[in-house]
Design a protein around this nucleic acid. Sequence first.
RNA 1: GCCGCGAUGGCGGAAUUGGUAGACGCACAGGACUUAAAAUCCUGCGGCUUCGGUCGUGUGGGUUCGAUUCCCACUCGCGGCACCA
Length: 832
Amino acid sequence: MTKYNHLKIEKKWQKLWSKKGVFKVKEDAVKPKYYVLDMFPYPSGAGLHVGHPKGYIATDVVARMKQMQGFNVLHPMGWDAFGLPAENYAIQNKIHPAEAVKKNVATFKKQLELLGFTYDWDKEINTTDPAYYKWTQWIFLQMFKKGLAYESFAPINWCPSCQTGLANEDLEEGKCERCGSLVEQKPIRQWVLKITDYAERLLNDLDKLKNWPEAIKEMQKNWIGRSEGADVDFKIKNFDLKIKVFTTRPDTLFGATYCVIAPEHELMSKLQPEIGNWQEVSIYIEGAKHKTALERTDLAKNKTGIELKGIKAINPVNNEELTVFVADYILAGYGTGAIMAVPAHDSRDYEFAVKYGIPIKEVVVPVGENQKLNIKNQNDNSKLKNENNELKSKVQSSKPQIIFEKDGIAVNSGFLDGLPTKEAKEKMIKWLEDNKFGERKVNYKLRDWVFSRQRFWGEPIPLIKCEKCGWVPVSENDLPVELPKVKSYTATGTGESPLSAIEKWVNTKCPKCSGPAKRETNTMPQWGGSCWYYLRYIDSQNDKALVDKDKEKYWSPVDFYVGGAEHATRHLIYARFWHKFLFDIDAVNYDEPFNRLQNVGLILAEDGRKMSKRWGNVINPDDVVKQYGADAMRVYEMFMGPFNQPCAWNANGLIGAKRFLDKVWFLQDKVDKKLVVSGKIDSLVHQTIKKVTDDIETMRFNTAIAKMMELVNEMNKETVISVSNFKFLISILSPFAPHICEELWAELGGKELLILSLWPKYDEKSVMAETTVIVIQVNGRVRDNIEFQTADISEEVAKEAALSSESVKKYINGTEIKKIIYVKNKLLNIVI
RNA sequence: GCCGCGAUGGCGGAAUUGGUAGACGCACAGGACUUAAAAUCCUGCGGCUUCGGUCGUGUGGGUUCGAUUCCCACUCGCGGCACCA
């Protein structure tokens, strides 16, 4: 037999598959469908490294098996090509972003094609194609019309290096996720999407996603950050104003000893005339403004604040006068931007109270301790002040008496005394509502999505500002609003997009009154186009509608979605939001886009670090394909370890995969066409078919391959193997190593392509082993293995055999047998 | 700090409705073939051992005839969030 020449074979079959169009998607609604999707790549200038295709190989394995199982498979690929990296790359290389994208896409496509994927390139999409972003703009317009897109002037995250505003989701520890610069708070005019309107549904519907990893759902839950509580109004003494606070612990209202207002709170300017130390306060407020997100985090351990002299807040439950502070440990953007502070039961308030000598009043004790407690004088603040040091030492030493953020029993709390926290909360909320001091309230950490970028390379926001009519949507007939051709697309840094300098493009007519008007010059963020691309694959040429609803009904939802976990709180939450909106306006049939999600574990470099140009440890798949072949690379990446776990690249492991394929190649010499039954191999073959089928379904590729290796090792020990057994082997191996398997299939005289043949079904009877081995234990220690020639062994038979075993007798040695435990067909434990 | 996940040979990893720990691969060692090397094939491969055994799945306890698997306490590592009231 000739040598296994991967270079020749792989090219040959790739050409033939393409020529015969075996991966062309058929709109054949009779067959069951299977939509398997990768998170589409961002075509960077660097090209692919070996880590990128790992997920694509996995979906390809699934797609190939599903195709052979008779499914109508949609397994598409496309490009997420708008955004800062393309623009920055273009600026650095002094070419137009569109040129850069074109070049990079060509490189990526060429690299992917070497790996033998089943993509139907007729379905290829590109988010920067005007025919595509026409519909991205269309979705934005629908949101605008429903009041879900609004203009805002509030301070947002500003990256001074990228010179654009960013969403909360785009930050990493207070730094720009892209370039690592410290992010500032800057008031920039911006468009914001009301994702918070969907917070409740985005949270609740996570329960529907049974086939998503729990970790991702947990991350989304935390990101949405729902908390229940109440808004409470504190009147300000001698002044017709009130401080509205949000608390999750209305049951601790009797323990409130001060209030805090965020520096940015609008109440500050209203209170100004009454604040005795305004100068000092205003300096503090100015200082807070200039702190970056990171500085604020760093200062978390050392809270600062200024007392507002002359301002007293009245606690509605007991009319106590409370000191009011301004402090930047309170965030303007969360809740009401002001709090009631209960230092005894909140560690942050506690820290602040200790620092500024504010009374600490205990109003919740652990269950069972309320009886023992001496009721302290509730009104004697000076006494409480003196107790601060005592309480402090209590907290810091041994077991704290004060309980933070935990449930217990209410004490010192008037009408709540003796109630467990849960009931106390309810009673207090009812009291607040009855007396009009507040109401039940739910808050979310999730912020509205800052959706505009002050950069060139993004979808133009399709709005026009008319002096008379205000913001007017571009007529849907005039979509897409295309990016103009320009010489300079460098960021202005003024808070306006580079588009604002292009007067010809900016100046236009109002669609409503035909008067003079100007286009919005901000563009959409990179995450816009990726919010709905999975719908475009279904109907990639549609110019009349976002997606044909019948086609959508057939193909949606995506059956299986594979991609990196880093998208948990960005793409995956944005896409769910848009999809739910599209469902609401009746553009799609289902309210969740992705039925099953699987995360791909990162491939690290051999040195254990991330693959990066910076470390010089990048491995290019082209080189691997050339030296060992696409099949070897596919098998290796699937065999490395559990699919969703990170794993370091190992060149020797790759050689192992190649060796395995060599063994399979030479097995063909052992195929005997006359052989019908090959004894014990038959049983192993069927076990392997079962295991590989199940393991591909559950993404346990490593164990699927291990089982096939075991089978190949056994086959190698035989002098001859049957045609049918060898065909079974190459059929189930073909999703992993499609080229070599097609070649072997053809060598065996297969008339049709292997990919067009049927996936093997295992024979239930053959899976069962012909003999049974039972482990014999004495006191839980293995003392013997007994082989029986039948499949089903009764307890009596097993017992008899065990007791007559010489090695077992030795251990029993006449001792009384207390108990015998029999696990059917597996194990017998004799207890003495 | 909070939430989630994890820890098994020299290495990547297998095995969990509790039932033979270390499948499969890599590395390594010995052998065969070869003038030689590569490739390939065969054998061995957790520690200790008086070769009978015995100890071993991050640590310390517990439940059980039996624990990598279940329970309690802890250590370390990874990921996410981070003054969210």
